[in-house]
Each structure stands twice: as C-alpha cells, then as structure tokens.
Write a protein that binds this DNA or RNA. Sequence first.
DNA 1: TGGCTATATAGCCTAATGGTTATATTGTGA
DNA 2: TCACAATATAACCATTAGGCTATATAGCCA
Lengths: 110, 110
Amino acid sequence: MDDRLDAIFSALSDPTRRAILARLANGKATVAELADPFELSQPAISKHLKVLEQAGLIRSGREANSRPRILEPAALKTIADWIADYRRFWDQSFDRLDDYLSKLQGTEND
Amino acid sequence: MDDRLDAIFSALSDPTRRAILARLANGKATVAELADPFELSQPAISKHLKVLEQAGLIRSGREANSRPRILEPAALKTIADWIADYRRFWDQSFDRLDDYLSKLQGTEND
DNA sequence: TGGCTATATAGCCTAATGGTTATATTGTGA
DNA sequence: TCACAATATAACCATTAGGCTATATAGCCA
C-alpha cells in the first residue's frame, strides 16, 4: 500500500502529468492528442503515460490503429482516502459532514 | 500554483515523509522524536523535514534547545481541493453532497 | 504485401533525490 | 564561559527521473 501511495503521489508531482489527467477528465484521448498541447517529444509523452499507467491513474485501450488512454479514478480515490485522515485539521465542519454521509448511505443510496 | 502542487505531491511521495506527517498529526514533535522510529541518520531526517517544510506541509517552532515541528494543514487542503475536481469520477453521491455543503455554509456556519 | 500512421523502446545525457559521514551552529545550564 | 545537547549544513556517492534522437513495432489500407 505504501508503494501504491508512493507511485501515485510521485506520478502526480509532475505538472505535465497532471495536465494529461485534466485532459482525460474530458474523455479518452490518443497519445497524439495528449501530446499536442506540449512542446515535448512524443517519446517524452509516452514516458509520462507509462508513469501514470503504472501508478494506476490511467489505462490503455485499443482502437483501430491507436491506443487511447482513459482515466482510472480508483487511484485518485486511494489518495483522497489517505488525505481524508487529515481533513479534521482544516475542516471544522467535517464531523457534521461525515454524519450526513452516513445518513445518505443509509437512506438514499438504494 | 503548479509549483506548489509539484512540491506538495513530491513531498508526499516518500513513505518516510508520510510517516512523519502521521506522527505530527498527534501533535508537535522534536527532530529527535521524529527520527526515533526510523533507521535513518539524523541528517537524513533533517533533509526530509526540510522537504516537508519547503512544501509547506510543516512548520518549525522554537522551544528551549529544540526546534519542534508542527503540522501545517493548509498544504494538505491545497491538494485535497485539487483532487476534489475529480471526485465526481468515483463518487456518485458527490453532487448531492456538494449541495449539502453549500447549505451548510449558508445556514450553520455563522 | 508495402507503406503509412501511431506508438513504444533503446540508448544517451543531465539534474535531482536520498542516503551517508564529518563538521558546523546554536542555545542551555552548570 | 564552557561543555553538552539538539539540529543543520557540507561534501560526497549511487540511483532515479525526465528530456532528447534514433529506431523498432504493430495495425490498417491501397
């Protein structure tokens, strides 16, 4: 688990990779499409994609001639959960919020 | 802002540094106390602390002969906010939750 | 099948990271 | 003030990361 957190946080520590994730939040995209906004070489982008994929933040698809990437939200949830343990330090209303969530699960989520 | 995110995510990508934060979640601690659980040299810990401090995740105090560290939650909130933009991808009840938060701000937070 | 398109891999370079030991700095208290 | 305790800094080393160019691979289509 420590290793997963290492990989995910490390992957997110690069602005190019975060920008790639932001792009993928709008839907799947090919490597060429993902590379387009940057002044980096294609291999550099492929490397970034490999880092993201190994961290579990994205997945590769298969479509005709291309290998489109899609977002893999579970990895982001992993670190969101990690951060949640610290939430009480900055969010005073967190306890009430947590109560609400429990109720929501019990009453509406069926 | 990109630079801040870089620094914070990068600081969090190391398990030693995350363990240090976890320790500081229980309250302030001296460098010696923070170093104790690890088999690392004292300078190695000081380096980690410097990384955490430069990322804004901790602060140094001054107390007699020692320089105790304390948690600085704002930096964690910074990345929590970043992740929040992706929350919809894994949390279906997020929209309702968001509504609730707005109401909470308006009615109870005074 | 041959060539084009899309992407991946290899090999190289430089800079940054994380560790070490040795040493400097700073404050406390006898 | 002197010595010790707590911490920081310096100098060094090995590994990793992120970039590049050149080249390999894989699938589609004429």
